[in-house]
């Protein structure tokens, strides 16, 4: 099987695609293909990894022009997965000499600066995450707050985010506006807004996402929902936040 991988140029040279032939073993995933290349064909290939079980969020990248975790993408399923149906924007439709029937195209996560090969600079993504104050203020209540299973499960949906950046890389708004905090950060915002342990901070938290590059910037492409490997559905969180902002006359 042929894997066409985006490579940075060395020492000022232009970026290029390099094609590797890898014989897939049973049960092999794309992350293992990248390791096979690094181990036996080209030890200069750079990509991030850690858990290899779709929980650490290190290996989000573009595979056949869809945003996926490399470890979660089974080689034998490539071409058989239900198409993500991402709304097109420039990184997804950039011209490349690629034969989808014979080659798997592997490119870095869009919308973030490329550092080397498949490694992108996540700094902006992490800064946006921090900007929504993604933490409880530890105010030591006298008695533990009781939380119903329903509320806990509702928050769980947003808190299952693994900060892989797939939604950020899939979002057409993030492509054109680097100041937009993006889908993941807004899902985290709602997770804390709705936490009964932080009810006193709700207004303050909402005011952090009401600015033009916060909630109002979303243009409802829903690419974040389609690309999220953890079914977080950030756009649904953004909708709820928007309704709260309108209700409280904050926007």
């Amino acid at each position: 099987m042929r894997f066409k991988v985006w490579r940075s140029g060395k020492e000022g040279a232009a970026a290029r695609y390099e094609t590797y032939e890898v014989e897939p073993r049973r049960g092999m995933n794309v992350l293992e293909v990248l390791f096979e290349i690094q181990d036996h064909k080209d030890d200069s290939l750079a990509f991030r990894y850690s858990c290899r079980g779709a929980v650490c969020g290190s290996c989000a990248m573009m595979i056949n022009r869809e945003i996926r975790l490399a470890c979660r993408t089974q080689v034998h399923m490539i071409g058989k997965y239900r198409p993500m149906g991402l709304k097109p924007f420039p990184p997804l439709v950039r011209q490349v000499d690629w034969d989808p029937s014979r080659e798997v195209l592997i490119e870095p996560l869009p919308n973030l600066p490329i550092l080397k090969d498949l490694v992108v600079d996540m700094a902006r993504f992490y800064e946006h995450h921090r900007a929504v104050k993604p933490y409880l203020e530890d105010k030591e209540p006298e008695r533990p707050v009781l939380i119903s299973p329903q509320v806990s499960e509702k928050l769980d949906k947003w808190a299952n985010c693994i900060l892989c950046g797939a939604c950020y890389g899939a979002c057409p708004v993030c492509y054109k506006n680097q100041r937009y905090v993006g889908p993941a950060a807004l899902a985290w915002s709602l997770r804390f807004v709705d936490d009964p342990r932080s009810s006193a901070e709700t207004l303050e938290r909402l005011s952090l996402v009401k600015h033009p590059d916060g909630v109002p910037a979303c243009e409802w492409y829903y690419n974040c929902v389609r690309a999220c490997p953890k079914s977080v559905a950030p756009a649904a969180a953004i909708r709820i936040l928007k309704n709260k902002l309108i209700e409280l006359k904050l926007i």
Partner: peptide, 20 residues
Amino acid sequence: IRELDRFGVLFSRTAEGAIA
């Protein structure tokens, strides 16, 4: 555990709302 609760961990809950 009580500290982790204050730090915001979303523990699964009993019907009464306590940590399960």
